[in-house]
């Protein structure tokens, strides 16, 4: 038996590591991946709470988060490809002009 708070602490640690990666990383693809990490961390607490309350609504919300993540990944990666075509770089510091 494990207290629910362990799962929540793990989720918090993963979320902050995601925030850290979002702030420290310069490669736009890695930054995008850290957003996925944050979403995953939130999903973990949803599932943990679903177990605590014995209610599957938490699982349904995880389902919705995954749908949103999939949509976000499709559009985001298309934007990344478009940026790479015009700027020929993936470094966010070099993508600092509104118009070329």
């Amino acid at each position: 038996m494990v207290p629910v708070s362990y799962y929540l602490v793990l989720s918090a640690v993963l979320f902050t590591l995601g925030v850290a990666a979002f702030l420290f990383k310069r490669n736009i693809i890695t930054i995008f991946m850290s957003i996925e990490l944050m979403l995953n961390a939130v999903n973990l607490s949803f599932v943990a709470f679903a177990n605590m309350h014995k209610d599957v609504s938490g699982h349904v919300f995880v389902f919705f988060v995954m749908v949103v993540a999939a949509a976000e990944a499709a559009v985001g990666l298309a934007i990344i490809i478009a940026i790479y075509r015009t700027r020929e770089t993936l470094n966010v510091d070099r993508v600092n002009l509104l118009k070329l």
Partner: peptide
Amino acid sequence: LFVFVIMLLNAGEEEHTRGS
């Protein structure tokens, strides 16, 4: 999809700048 895009764009190691 991520791995595919990384391979497609042939992304290299990231460079560190003053901002980072």
